[in-house]
C-alpha cells in the first residue's frame, strides 16, 4: 500500500508536474488537478484520494471555495492547504473550515510527506471506525 493517495491541486502546471514526479518517487500515489472544479470532478466515485493538497490561490474557484466543496462532497477526505506567505491567513481560515493543516510553498519534501501521512492516518482511522461499524451492523443483522 502506498504511503498515501494524494491529489495535487494547483494552477501552475510545471509545479504540479515536478511535485508529482518527486512524490511518486517517494511512494505516494499522485493524482493531478489544475483547478478547483477539476479536483471536485476527480473526487467523485471511485477516487482513491485520501489527502488533497490544495493551492489557496487559484483562478476560478479559489482554495477556500474548493475546500468547502470537497468537505461537502467527500467529508472524509483530508485537505492540506498549500500557500504562499501572502495568503497564510486564508490557509488558517481553511483549517477552521476543517482542513487538516497547511504547508508553505515552496515546501520541504519530508515535511510535506510527514503531514500527508498524518492526514492519511487520521482518515484511515475514521474509515476503520466506519468499517468496524459496518461489520457490527452486518453481524447484528445476521444474528
Amino acid at each position: 500500500m502506498a504511503i498515501a493517495n494524494i491529489m495535487l491541486v494547483d494552477d501552475e502546471v510545471p509545479f504540479v508536474e515536478a511535485m508529482t514526479k518527486r512524490l511518486a518517487r517517494r511512494g505516494l500515489e499522485v493524482e493531478q488537478a489544475f483547478n478547483g472544479s477539476d479536483a471536485l470532478k476527480k473526487l467523485t466515485g471511485e477516487s482513491k484520494t485520501e489527502v488533497v493538497i490544495l493551492d489557496v490561490k487559484m483562478p476560478g474557484m479559489d482554495g477556500i471555495e474548493t475546500l468547502k466543496a470537497i468537505k461537502a462532497q467527500a467529508p472524509l477526505v483530508e485537505v492540506i492547504m498549500l500557500t504562499g506567505h501572502a495568503t497564510v491567513e486564508s490557509a488558517i481560515e481553511g483549517m477552521k473550515l476543517g482542513a487538516f493543516d497547511y504547508l508553505m510553498k515552496p515546501c520541504d519534501m519530508d515535511h510535506l510527506i510527514a503531514k500527508v501521512s498524518d492526514a492519511a492516518a487520521r482518515k484511515r482511522q475514521q474509515e476503520e471506525k466506519i468499517i468496524s461499524a459496518r461489520i457490527k451492523e452486518i453481524t447484528s443483522r445476521m444474528a
Binding site: E12, P14, F15, R22, K57, G84, H85, P106
Partner: peptide, 25 residues
C-alpha cells in the same frame, strides 16, 4: 499589489525548487 506579486513570484520559485529537488532525486 505586493500581495498579488508575492504570490506571482512565489509560484515560479516553488517550481524551481521542485525541479531542483527532482534533479537531486
Amino acid at each position: 499589489l505586493a500581495a498579488g506579486i508575492a504570490h506571482e513570484i512565489n509560484n515560479p520559485v516553488a517550481i524551481m525548487v521542485e525541479e531542483a529537488g527532482w534533479l537531486q532525486d
